[in-house]
Amino acid sequence: MRVRKIRDGTVIDHIPAGRALQVLRILGITGMEGFVVAIVMNVESKKLGRKDIVKIEGRFLDLEEVNKISLIAPTATINIIKGYRVVSKTRVSIPDKIEGILRCMNPNCITNQPREPIKPSFLVVSKSPIKLICEYCNQLMVSEDVVKQLVGEL
């Protein structure tokens, strides 16, 4: 199977098999935006056994999006394509501290109180499998919780 090259845009490679749709969900891409999007799922990979790939024409990612992707697809690499050439290739990395992206699951946590000037903040206690702890109330958050919050039920 061949998928044509894109001219300008982003190729997200080495996504754990089966997670490509979740990556698109994180980026808010539904297919109605008009970008050319190619999704390749469950193809063979030397590194991962099987992997997914997503190619998006005319769309680049910001840091928050990259951080979100790192949480559900920690093996992913992000290639920026300009004029059919790869101009940068980076592996996502889970930051040591995650601010603002996720909500604490403890309703009694200070970060869930309305009208308080505070942002949720998590310390990453394990990267594989991912495990986070709320910096304020110490509530644990595991991989399934993170995926559920970022992409909802798929």
């Binding site: 403890n106 009694n108 946590c109 200070i110 970060t111 505070i118 709320c134 910096e135 304020y136 109330c137």
Partner: peptide, 23 residues
Amino acid sequence: RIEGAAKFAAQIAEAPVINAGDG
């Protein structure tokens, strides 16, 4: 009763904060 309240208070206040129980 809210968890993390003392930590939040410590970020706001210049004076030292003692947590006398949070949730």
